[in-house]
Nucleic acid binder design. Structure first.
Lengths: 345, 345
DNA sequence: CTGAAAGCGCTTACAG
DNA sequence: CTGAAAGCGCTTACAG
């Protein structure tokens, strides 16, 4: 306890009067060690405050029991919840989570991936399928498992081969659900507030699903009616400002996520626009605030915590069986609340 | 590229026609390697997709360039933002963040700490000063740097010695600012909605500061007027329900954080209580939503992103100079908005 | 049930 | 400017 350096397995072995092999076995495979030898080792460990050195262990074992995850940002409840689901699930199986954010800077991602690969991660989890080719190549060359989340269809394609399993939602269906709901209410003039779609397959697909469903009902969504804004309440506000300058103005707005939708709602309230009487708003995510606010937000519920849990389970399964897990598409659902209603006549 | 296992430094050395020592130097200290040797090595690395093995490197170097952080939960914007600040700052100096949450289960913390210590972390960051003695002992025995955040005063005391530097806020001052503001408005009957105070020094100190300031003005805050609730909108709602059963009912409520304050506001709105005419509410954190909602929330602004940045800088400084950094107390400020006003007469 | 020894993939004095 | 060799702290066949 009073030596200058951290206790090593040899210190424990010396104190317990056994070899380091036996200490190692007592730790990783206790059953094969005689009970009272085990007890002496346990006492020595406690006396020394011994904690095994992870890098040595990882080097000997060839795996570090860590998973690296890269998300756009933690500063959005939706990613924070998914990360929480990942972390909790991994942790309960002895894996630790290394987390990084690239703040929607795709160029940064490759460096973040490299940093993770240099830290003994056994798997990497990324958001979406839009990633630089070098990112995929580096991960493949490193022989590290790769899982993509938040998106679906089946295996992500990259060139000719299946690059990685994906666990996520049908993002086109999100736009479809929103469009159907608004069409049924009788709306005919629409606006969309989306995050930036470049390098963001989820955002793109949500808008595509929305647009396509309108098209199937004979309604064209002009480019000008789709505005891209940075995520955040301010983005939602700015988005509505732009949409309200259109002539004729839309009677219904689909927002790519709840933060944009809330911003849109705040802007409407600030302008004295009656929601949903004069304007309907549909969001996506179902953040906790969505059901609390007045009027409560009509939105598409995405089970993001579950998403993290499922992604973690897939990774754990992969590590355990050395077999690529199945892709998964989690169910989503439209939740109709107070911000949507028939258009004013 | 088509071998079954990941490229090692010896593969790079062979391909470049040099020794592993030279490859290693080219990577960590390029200046001492002849330019065209360096170029051959660079090409070999690219051709093989070589990424150094972090566990081997960490073992040889004695440090893993990772920092472990444990927060109560990521599912609260306030922790997510601090983690984001930590991560961004560490990452830009070549350190990676290992993150865990204990979900307010103090018994879980020791195991989480152990899991982190077993992964070659060079430092550990914890929230608050309330931790099990074994947690402190284990970290000390592991010779890993420890930093506490979110709390202040000076060095955290544990037994007789300074256990760790702390970087945070004066949590008593938070309660004091709220009390002063409400007293000046003319309130005399108060309620408090707090998170659970056991094992949460921040929550305790906020309430203490509030109570003490009232006492200095001759007002006693009865135990029954302080309700503890789980964090979350529902907790805030439940808290106000309880406070409203008091006779006489409080005219002003101080909430331990903005999530509780928002829940309190939603409950008031649901009951037709006019805020701030019939009830004043003061929160803490200044979440982005606080200024957007109607009425906007009077709250104490805590610079939590900065907190993460400062904590990361302190850790980096510690790693670089091998000297314990100074403790820091970050400035906070009361932001008066729409949920506070004079009591009804 | 236990120990001696080799090996995991790096780094770094040391010698040239 | 470069290479041979030892060492970081573990694990695990192998032998007993």
């Amino acid at each position: 306890m009073s030596t200058l350096s951290r206790a090593r397995i040899s210190d424990v072995a010396a104190l317990a009067g056994v070899s380091t092999s036996t200490v190692s076995r007592a730790l990783s495979n206790p059953d094969v060690v005689k009970p009272d030898t085990r007890a002496r080792i346990r006492d020595a460990i406690a006396a020394l405050g011994y904690v095994p050195d992870g890098s040595a262990r990882a080097l000997a074992l060839g795996r570090g029991r860590m998973v690296g995850a890269i998300v756009p940002t933690l500063d959005n409840a939706i990613f924070a919840r998914a990360v929480q689901g990942l972390q909790t699930t991994l942790s309960s199986s002895g894996y630790q989570l290394l987390i990084s954010a690239h703040e929607y800077n795709p160029a940064a991602e490759i460096e973040v991936v490299r940093a993770l690969l240099e830290r003994a991660v056994d798997a990497i989890v990324l958001v979406g399928i839009d990633h630089a080719p070098q990112t995929f190549e580096l991960i493949r060359a490193s022989r590290v498992a790769l899982l993509l989340m938040w998106t679906y269809p089946g295996q992500a394609q990259h060139g000719d081969e299946n690059v990685a399993p994906v666990i996520g939602f049908d993002n086109r269906e999100i736009g479809r659900l929103a469009a159907q709901h608004l069409l049924e209410l009788g709306h005919r003039r629409f606006g969309v507030i989306s995050g930036f779609m470049r390098q963001n397959d989820r955002a793109r697909q949500r808008v595509e699903g929305f647009r396509q469903t309108l098209a199937e009902h004979g309604i064209r969504l002009p480019e000008a009616n789709v505005v891209e804004q940075p995520f955040g309440y301010e983005g939602g506000r700015a988005g509505l400002k732009l949409l309200m300058q259109l002539r004729p103005a839309p009677t219904a707005v689909f927002c790519g996520n709840d933060v944009l939708a809330m911003g849109c709602l705040f802007e409407a309230q600030g302008r004295g626009i009656d929601v949903p009487r004069q304007l309907s708003i549909v969001g996506c995510d179902d953040l906790p605030i969505a059901s609390q606010i007045t009027p409560s937000l009509t939105t598409v519920l995405l089970p993001t915590y579950d998403l993290g849990v499922h992604a973690a389970r897939a990774v754990l399964h992969w590590m355990k069986n050395d077999a690529m897990p199945e892709s998964e598409c989690l169910p989503i659902e439209l939740v109709v609340r107070g911000t949507s209603g028939p258009p004013a006549v």
